[in-house]
């Protein structure tokens, strides 16, 4: 296929791949055109691009929230194109929406419990792991999540998604609206999560910082793959620098 990532050729299938996706919302116009996104086990893949490039749409398509006309999504070799988002959660995909991603009226701990709603086993171990990753949440676990600061809320959101013990975590602009210091900290935590073997797919506005931690980067323009490569390679690519990164610093 023409739009398929050329670097993928001949390699084993990645852990998750949304291949040659074309589609949009409902009966509206297509937003994605032959777009491919993939992430390997335990790696961080980042989707960047200008406003309106379809970054979030590409990720939602992988999660089953977009109506695909063409293309397929495969998780660990299994075709999941037809599954609902809920079914994908049960299969080990965790999703952190950009906004409204916590239960504001519930305590931090209840947020985590709700993340683990589908699990029948003991969730205390997972909860401890989340508290280790985000120590501040442990101190605030009896507080309503809606009372926390922006960065802490994002931690709750990520923690909630981690409670299902996903094999893949998808983050939609996790650093939107948080201060640079908090952003750096969040990225550090995301790297830590990836080290535990969880694959990360995220959409980011802060392209430079995101690409710095990315194993793989996708630059989308108008719903299509414009540039693909390792984070470092993209950062070094003069064309990418000129068109996307020039203005960010």
């Amino acid at each position: 296929m023409s739009g398929a990532d050329p670097q993928m050729a001949g390699k084993p299938e990645p852990f998750l791949i949304g291949e040659a996706m074309t589609g949009g919302y409902g009966r509206g116009a297509d937003i994605l055109h032959d777009c491919t996104i993939a992430v390997d086990k335990g790696q961080i893949a980042v989707i960047v691009g200008p406003n309106g490039a379809g970054k979030s749409t590409a990720m939602k398509a992988v999660f089953g929230m977009v109506d695909l006309r063409l293309g397929a999504v495969r998780l660990d070799g299994q075709d999941i194109t037809a599954l609902t988002p809920q079914a994908r959660v049960a299969m080990g995909m965790g999703f952190v929406p950009q906004t409204h991603n916590i239960f504001t009226s519930m305590t931090v701990e209840e947020n985590l419990e709700m993340g683990a709603f589908l699990r029948q086993d003991d969730i205390r171990g997972t909860m401890e792991q989340v508290y280790e990753l985000f120590p501040i949440l442990k101190d605030k676990r009896r507080q309503a999540a809606g009372e926390l600061s922006g960065g802490q809320r994002q931690q709750v959101a990520v923690g909630r998604a981690l409670m299902t013990r996903p094999s893949l975590l998808m983050l939609d602009e996790p650093t939107a609206g948080v201060s640079p210091i908090v952003m750096d900290e969040l990225f550090d935590r995301i790297i830590e999560v990836a080290r535990t073997g969880i694959s990360i797919l995220m959409v980011e506005q802060n392209a430079r910082q995101a690409l710095e931690i990315a194993d793989k980067g996708y630059v989308l323009v108008q719903g299509s793959n414009a540039h693909t490569g390792s984070g470092k390679a993209l950062l070094a690519d003069p064309q990418v620098r000129k068109s996307f990164l020039g203005g960010t610093e």
């Binding site: 991603n101 239960f103 209840e110 709700m114 709603f117």
Partner: peptide, 22 residues
Amino acid sequence: TKMGKSMRAYSDNEDLALLSGI
């Protein structure tokens, strides 16, 4: 109870409740 909490979760944020498998 878990059921009661899931009701509150659903009332609070329907989309996220669905994402959590409620």
